[in-house]
Simulated scan of single mutants.
Amino acid sequence: MKRFAKWRLISLFAILALVLSGCGRPYLSSLRPAGEVADIQYDLMKLSTWIMVGVIIVVLIIFTIVFFRFRRKDDRIPKQVEGSHTLEIIWTVIPILLLLILAVPTVAATFKLADVKEMDKKNSKALVINVRSHLYWWDFEYPNEKIVTSQDLVVPTNEKVYFNLKSLDVKHSFWIPAVGGKLDTNTDNINRFWLVFDDKRANEAGNLFYGKCAELCGPSHALMDFKVKAMSRADFDTWVKDMQAVKQPEKAQTDLAAQGQEIFNKSCIGCHAVTPEDKPEAARLAPNLTNFGERSRIAGILDHNKEELKNWIKNPETYKPGNEMTNKYPAMTDEQLDALAEYLMGLKVQD
C-alpha cells in the first residue's frame, strides 16, 4: 500500500506540473514569439523537437517489432546479424543526416543573429542601446540620443534594435522571453546582438513586454525584472524628444511635492538622477528617475502606486534582499514618505 501511495503522489505531481506548464501570460512566453529573433529561435526549437520525437517513434516501433517477433519461444537461436555492413551503414548514415538537417539552419541562424556590423558603420541610423546591469536593476543608455533611463526599456517596433551588453558588478543575463535572447552581461567584455519587436504582437500584449535576468546573480536574482515599452517609430521619436527636452529636474507641482523634492535633494540625489543626461558608468549608482511617474512597476516588481512606493523606500530589503539601496539613507517619518512619494510620482516627461 505504501508503494501504491508513493506512485499516486508522483502521478499527482506529474499532472500538476503539466497543468502549471500551461499557465502564464503571452508576453512572458518564449513559445509565443513576438519578433524576428524569437521566430527564428522558435522554428529551431520546433525543428529539433520534431527530430527528437521522430527518433523516439522509430526506436519505439523497432523495439515493439523486435519484442514481439523475436521473443523466445524455444531453444533455437535466431539468425545473427552481427557485423552486417548494411545495418552498420544505415545506423551511421541516418544520424549524420539528422545532424546535418539540424546543424545547417542552426549555423545559418547563428551567423545571422550575430551580424551587428550595422552598429560599426559611420553615420549609421541604427538604434543602439547600451544595457548596463546592476544588483538588481537595469539602466539603458541611448548614446546617439544622449539620454539614459532605467528599468523601463523603450523601443520602436518593426525595426532592428541593437544592444551593447555589460555588467557593472557581477555576471547577469539579458532576456526578453517573448522577443528573443538571452545573452550574458559580463564585467570584462561587451556582448552585442539585435532584436526586432513585432508591432502586432506588441499590440496584443498591450505594448508591454517583460524582461528578466537569466543568470543566477544573488539572493534577489528572481526579482531582477525590467519592462519593455514597444511603440511605433513616430511615438518613439516623440518620447525621445520629450526626454531630451528635460534639462532641469521636474518642478514640484504641489506644496507636498515641493517638500518631497527638498527631501529628495538632501537624501536621494547623491545616487539617483532626475534628468536623462548621459553620465559616466561610475556615476550610475542607482536607477535614473527622470520619468519615474510613467513607469509600470516600482523596483521592477511592485505595483506602481504611492503606497507601494512608500513601502519600498521604508524597507527595500523586505522586497529585494541584498539590494544596494538598503541603509543608504536615514529613516523617514510617514509625513516625509508621503511628501517624497508625491514628488517622485509626479516625475513625468509626457502628458
Rank of each mutant, 00 (worst) to 15 (best):
W7R: 02
L9N: 00
A14N: 05
L16W: 10
A17N: 02
S21P: 00
G24S: 03
G24K: 09
S29L: 11
P33L: 05
V37L: 06
I40K: 06
Y42A: 10
L47R: 02
S48M: 05
V53S: 11
V59H: 04
L60M: 13
F63H: 10
V66N: 05
R71E: 06
D74P: 03
D74L: 02
P78A: 06
Q80K: 13
V81L: 10
V81D: 02
G83A: 05
S84C: 08
T86C: 01
E88T: 14
I89S: 06
W91P: 05
T92L: 13
V93E: 02
P95R: 05
P95E: 03
I96H: 08
L98F: 12
L100T: 11
I101N: 01
I101T: 15
T106G: 10
T106H: 10
A108Q: 07
A109G: 07
M119E: 13
K121P: 06
L127V: 12
V128C: 01
V128K: 11
R132V: 09
R132W: 13
D139T: 14
D139K: 09
Y142D: 07
T149F: 05
V155C: 05
V155G: 04
P156T: 04
P156D: 03
P156C: 00
P156N: 03
P156M: 01
E159Q: 08
N164S: 09
L168D: 12
K171G: 12
H172G: 11
V179I: 13
L183E: 15
D184K: 11
D188H: 11
D188I: 12
L195F: 02
N203Q: 15
N203S: 14
A205E: 05
A205T: 15
N207D: 15
N207H: 07
F209M: 04
G211Y: 06
K212E: 10
E215V: 02
G218F: 02
A222W: 14
M231R: 00
M231V: 12
S232T: 10
D235T: 07
D242H: 07
V246I: 13
K247F: 00
Q248L: 12
P249H: 03
P249W: 03
E250I: 14
A258D: 08
N265W: 00
C268P: 10
C268W: 00
V274G: 02
E277P: 00
P280E: 06
A282P: 00
A283W: 07
P287Q: 04
N288C: 12
L289A: 00
G293V: 14
A299M: 07
G300C: 11
I301Y: 03
I301L: 11
N311K: 08
W312V: 07
P321T: 09
G322I: 06
T326Y: 03
Y329V: 11
Y329P: 01
M332G: 03
D334I: 01
L337F: 01
L340Q: 04
G346M: 03
